[in-house]
Computed example of a mutant assay.
Amino acid sequence: MSLPQPVPPSWKDLGKSSNDLLGKDYHFHGTSLEVKTATPSNVTFKVDGSRDSKNSFVAGNLEGKYTDKAHGLTFTQAWSTSNALRTQIELENQIAKGLKLDTTTILHPEKSAKSVLLNAAYKQPGLHSRAVLDVFKGPTFTADTVLGRDGFLVGAEASYNVTEGRVTKYSAAVGFSAPEYAVTLHSLSNFSTFAASYYHRVSPDVEAGAKAVYDVKATSPGVALEVGTKAYLDSAAFVKAKINNSGVLALGYTQALRPGVKASFGLALDTQRLNEAGHAGPAHKVGAQFVFEA
């Protein structure tokens, strides 16, 4: 007899364990600062800024969010240094249990550009489905669904251009997820890109994962491979390391300095150029991130 089925991950979260292991906490593209605060009236503020080490460009974002948990309502307003205004309104579990609706608008006053996204997500045991309508781009309707049973996952995504009257994109994926490990296979971009990811929680303190990507249309032949690991030093610190088949080694270290204060440092090295005297090419990168949360 099968156990009660949990809600499967959404399409974008298939392979999330491996993607997070290989993609998060590697802050080597510059320096960034993030400050989060909350008020007793369910309003949170977030200010973040970053300086790109490659072009010294500084970008920032100011965000305010109000949450009314009793009515399932969330209102978010954000303003970036590129003068982009983003407004998001979310309503969850009000019309039907498991149904979430949200509207996102982005306005660029200087460019006279705007976008409106209408989103819907429906979650039930064994089912996670989403739909997005991009009002001004196309309009384009995108839908995806993930089915799950006994750890096995099957998902698909498709985009339809309403004006052109044709399917512009389609993808599919299968996977298996267990508490200690997960395997996911993707066929993306109209079945022209294939990806396989693997995640394994070796012990409570050690995680490992790998990802392989093959692009049929890529100019360089072969499979792009990346492997990585994460190890907790104690309850307040962990280190991460990964390397790809191009010889780029990335290292990350994250330390909780005190409750609400976290510092992360990253380093990327091109191991094929370590013996070149005085080399400081673009493949060698270093960076840091500081997060303050109250």
Rank of each mutant, 00 (worst) to 15 (best):
G138E: 00
K211P: 04
A120G: 13
V183T: 13
E164L: 12
V213T: 15
V227N: 09
N190G: 12
E90I: 11
A224D: 15
K111F: 00
V227S: 13
S189M: 12
Y160N: 05
D134M: 02
D150I: 02
K211F: 04
L153M: 09
V223T: 15
V162C: 03
L133S: 00
F136D: 06
P221K: 15
E164V: 06
V167K: 09
A210D: 05
A96L: 11
T87E: 06
V202N: 04
A120K: 02
A172F: 10
T81Y: 02
S129R: 02
E110T: 01
K123W: 01
V135T: 05
V223I: 15
G148E: 08
S197V: 12
P179M: 10
S187C: 10
V183F: 14
N83A: 06
R86T: 13
A218F: 03
E180Q: 13
S112L: 06
A224R: 08
S129Q: 07
V116H: 02
A178W: 10
T168P: 07
P179D: 11
A172H: 06
P179A: 09
L118P: 05
V162R: 04
P109C: 02
G151I: 08
A131G: 13
L85A: 01
L225Q: 10
V202Y: 11
L185S: 11
T81E: 03
A113S: 07
H128K: 01
V116M: 06
D134G: 05
E180A: 13
N83L: 06
E92T: 14
L107R: 03
A178V: 06
F136V: 00
R201T: 12
E110R: 01
E90A: 12
E157C: 06
V183Q: 07
I89Q: 09
S80A: 05
T163Q: 07
S187H: 08
L107F: 11
L133F: 01
I95L: 15
V167H: 05
I89A: 12
A96E: 08
K123Y: 00
L185R: 05
L185I: 14
A224S: 15
S203C: 01
Y198H: 12
V146I: 08
F194H: 15
L188R: 14
A195D: 12
Y214M: 06
Y214I: 03
A195V: 14
D102N: 13
N83D: 11
P204R: 09
A121G: 10
Y181C: 07
D205N: 11
A195N: 10
E164H: 09
T105I: 05
A212S: 13
D150W: 01
S197E: 15
K137W: 00
